[in-house]
Design a protein around this nucleic acid. Structure first.
Length: 822
RNA sequence: GCGAGAGUGGCGGAACUGGUAGACGCGCUGGACUUAGGAUCCAGUGGGGCAACCCGUGGGGGUUCGAGUCCCCCCUUUCGCACCA
């Protein structure tokens, strides 16, 4: 090695061969269990979690590689900081995606999924992640979904799981339930038939009971702000009032007049409520409808039901509706107002009924105009009064004052809200309420590929939970898992499975044939990782106390709402039941960005997807990892440009060469060492901020210093850099570390310390401005005084020539600049 | 429509609390070494001008000694949510 001449880097005896090195270290990590921490006796446990992937048939997506690498870097860095890091992985392999793909290629998911997983595992290993492969899990494993079913039962016992009828998208041709994504412009994605709504009995979780807590915790948990905002919007808390309207006239019926309760956020506008609108599905519709209107109403309801759930909610379409023939009394004005039904009112929000205030709500305004209903102004803005005509709904509520509202005239909107609610409360006609946009979580899927919901129906005993000792309820192998005419899950066709004795009375009962939502599988998987070998409980209490909550969770923002909200909910429930000591699952969550390619989104149809295998083959995993992280800020993503990767590869080549050539004799260069310490500081600060791109830039900058003017670096200048690079390019780091003579893994070496004293420069270039314009810089000691700096600046002709007369003012920012204002 | 984010060289992107705009990399230009190079190494590289200098962070105003960064208005764009009463 000593014989190599300075100029013969390319010919040094051991060229950088990523393929060989990466194979070697992946095997070594496996044999020596380098990445399998002792879960029972960790010194400083750190649970580093990435969102587990859905093992698609296409194989690992470059976006997965990006996300997992970013996650891995954080974990490896924590390990270098002295933590015992647990970085598990698993597969989210149940669900409609897998099932649809299986249907498409005509292979049974029970054959297909293990194949996909095998391929994913192979690809993931090649990326060189610090994953503890001994703790891999799959949601499709009965040993796993046994506990998914157990969680369902816990919610059932607590009264948090219940059954009700709910609308689903139904394809009359395929005879199956469709998810919203499978409905394209009102038609079935597969056969093109118009989709309808159907009402099926389904299982729900009462997540709305937790709405306020789920919202409140967002104030303190350390999560990406974008994610927290998305959750706040999704939970959609709104304060308002419920107001009761009495139905008038002969439709009143025997038990007194029916009452309609509406939810509104604008109780202040009640004097302007000129009609009511009920959702077509509202239960009171048949009761109140007048005989003369019955035919029209029934026809309208039938038409609404024909629509699929997506089309129903299209905003732009023309308002439609039908008069019921009934009237209700406005409790504020005492006037009788007509009751209509219209599909713009949704049964699932609020009470399924609204008081329409066309003067101050755009939708109501459109509706009133179309059907000739009265429009009354009850709020006047600046320069308006009670008589100013409304050409459009006036929805401004900052400047408005009440008009045409009896005793409340002249109040501001905010004042009127509380005063009117109080007034209605006193008269028993309303009350202040908080309403949430969040709905209960529908967990039933009328499908095959999921964990069966552990319920048995008995004609004598009703709904019976499967006893815990009988879990798991195994998903049976069904040759033809296609949905059929029956309209229920294919599981209903498997007689021996379907017919089962009632656990209570022993008579023949029937199993629930729905399977549960994939989001339930993924709502608790992080709890399972530390306890994968435990088979008598879902998670071991001691392990759980040691490792949880998760220290750092990284994943995509596409899961900002559903997955992350459901996971928080399940964690809170298990906490309330005493199974967990914490109520929030993830100490810290960060959302990663998206990778695009050459400025465009990657997609199969465009044929511009990146195959990780090919790129690893060509460049090596270390180069690919580092390049992906170099593209841009991890939390924002980046643009994968094929041409750029050579720069990163060159950087690793130069690192390799530097380590090969490094001399041990003599002393390292003081200037280079200062740069080294600055680099250690920068990289150590950038990684925790997920600013991986700038950390890499800092190392590259140091490399330029290290090799400037074709100098031969000293070992003491190179060796710490190997550790800095290790989280990004773990294989080359291990190899060079070993070649430097170390026996232990570089990840057990510890992060190098920097010496603050060494970082400080003695002299700096102080920027000098004259009247705010940069005119030059002067070389001065770091701790220069203002006067000395000014003298130095005025001593420089290039600067002094801009200073005319005596300076009026001098601004001096130590270590930064001097501004002379003339 | 509502909510969140982003507009900086030829390109991807730097710039901590307002303080040298363009770090780092790609590309490009020149040079060195070479039989050769699409390898490697070194140097240069925002625009204009011979130069002194001038102009530059989507557009327009403003605050400040000083603005990519703060404030107001507008444009473009990405991503969520979407008749939520």
């Amino acid at each position: 090695m000593t014989s190599s001449k300075p100029n013969s880097i390319a010919h040094s005896q051991a060229p950088y061969d990523p393929g060989a090195i990466e194979r070697k270290w992946q095997e070594r990590w496996h044999e020596q269990r380098t990445n399998s921490p002792d879960l029972d006796r960790p010194a400083r446990p750190f649970f580093q979690l990435m969102m587990f992937p859905y093992p698609s048939a296409e194989g690992l997506h470059i976006g997965n590689v990006f996300a997992f690498t970013g996650n891995d870097i954080y974990g490896r860095f924590q390990r270098l900081q002295g933590h015992t890091v647990f970085e598990p992985i698993g597969f989210d392999a149940f669900g409609i995606h897998s099932e649809n793909h299986a249907l498409k290629v005509g292979t049974h998911p029970m054959e297909l999924i293990p194949r996909n997983i095998e391929n994913f595992r192979r690809q993931l290993r090649r990326v060189g992640l610090m994953v503890d492969w001994s703790r891999e899990l799959s949601t499709t494993d009965p040993a796993y979904y046994k506990w998914t079913q157990w969680i369902f039962l816990q919610l059932l016992y607590k009264g948090l799981a219940y059954k009700k009828k709910a609308a689903v998208n139904w394809c009359p041709s395929c005879k199956t339930v469709l998810s919203n994504e499978q409905v394209i412009a009102g038609h079935c994605e597969r056969c093109g038939t118009a989709v309808e709504q159907r009402f099926l009995e389904q299982w729900f979780f009462r997540i709305t009971d937790y709405a306020q807590r789920l919202l409140d915790d967002l104030d303190w948990i350390d999560w990406s702000e974008t994610t927290k905002t998305a959750q706040r919007n999704w939970i959609g808390r709104s304060e308002g009032a419920e107001i009761t309207f009495e139905v008038m006239g002969e439709r009143a019926g025997e038990n007194g007049a029916p009452r309609i309760t509406v939810f509104t956020t604008r109780p202040d506008t009640i004097f302007g409520a000129t009609y009511l609108v009920l959702a077509p599905e509202h239960p009171l519709v048949p009761t109140i409808t007048a005989p003369a209107q019955r035919a029209a109403v029934e026809q309208y309801v039938a038409r609404t039901v024909k629509q699929d759930l997506v089309a129903r909610k299209v905003t732009e379409k023309e308002k439609t509706g039908v008069f019921t023939g009934a009237y209700a009394r406005n409790p504020a004005t005492g006037r009788d107002i007509p009751i209509w039904i219209a599909d713009y009112v949704l049964m699932e929000y609020g009470t399924g009924a609204i008081m329409a205030v066309p003067g101050h709500d755009e939708r109501d305004f459109q509706f009133a105009e179309k059907f000739g209903l009265p429009i009354v102004r009850v709020v006047a803005g600046e320069g308006e009064d009670a008589g100013t005509p409304l050409t459009t709904a006036y929805t401004e509520n900052e400047a408005g004052r009440l008009v045409n509202s009896g005793a409340f005239d002249g109040l501001t909107v905010a004042e009127a809200k509380s005063r009117i609610v109080r007034w209605l409360e006193e008269r028993g006609a309303g009350k202040a309420t908080v309403n949430f946009r969040l709905h209960d979580w529908a967990i039933s899927r009328q499908r095959y590929w999921g964990p069966p919901i552990p319920i048995i129906y008995c004609d004598a005993c009703g709904i019976q939970p499967v006893p815990e000792k009988d879990l798991p309820v195994l998903l049976p192998y069904i040759e033809d898992f296609r949905p059929d005419d029956s309209g229920v899950s294919p599981l209903a066709r498997h007689e021996e499975w379907y017919r089962v004795p009632c656990p209570r009375c022993g008579k023949l009962g029937r199993r629930e044939t729905d399977v549960s939502d994939t989001f339930l599988d993924s709502a608790w998987y992080f709890l399972r990782y530390p306890s994968t070998e435990v088979d008598d409980k879902p998670f071991d209490p001691v392990r759980t106390r040691t490792w949880l909550p998760v220290d750092m969770y990284i994943g995509g923002n596409e899961h900002a709402v559903l997955h992350l909200l459901y996971t928080r909910f399940i964690t809170m429930v298990l906490h309330d039941m005493g199974y967990l000591e914490f109520a929030e699952p993830f100490e810290k969550f960060r959302a990663h960005g998206l990778i695009i390619r050459e400025g465009a989104k990657m997609s199969k149809t465009k044929g511009n997807v990146i195959n990780p295998d090919e790129h690893i083959e060509r460049w090596g995993a270390d180069t690919l990892r580092t390049y992906l992280m170099f593209l841009g800020p991890f939390e924002e993503g980046g643009d994968y440009r094929d041409a750029g990767i050579s720069g990163v590869r060159r950087f690793l080549e130069r690192l390799w060469a530097s380590a090969q050539e490094a001399r041990s004799d003599g002393a390292p260069d003081e200037g280079v060492l200062r740069k080294l310490h600055q680099t250690i500081k920068r990289v150590g600060e950038d990684i925790p901020r997920l600013s991986y791109n700038t950390a890499i830039a800092a190392m590259m900058e140091y490399m330029n210093t290290l090799r400037a003017d074709e100098r031969t670096p000293h070992r003491a200048e190179v060796e710490p850099l190997v550790v800095l690079v290790a989280p990004f390019a773990p294989h080359i780091a291990e190899e060079l570390w070993e070649r430097f003579g170390h026996r232990e893994s570089v990840f057990d070496a510890g992060w190098p310390a920097y010496d603050p004293a060494r970082i400080a420069e003695e002299e700096i270039d102080l920027v000098v401005q004259v009247n705010g314009k940069t005119r030059g810089k002067v070389r001065v000691p770091v701790d220069v005084t203002q006067d000395a700096a000014l003298a130095a600046a005025l001593g420089a002709p290039a600067i002094a020539k801009f200073v005319t007369g005596t300076p009026k003012k001098v601004i001096f920012v130590p270590k930064r600049l001097l501004n002379i204002v003339a």
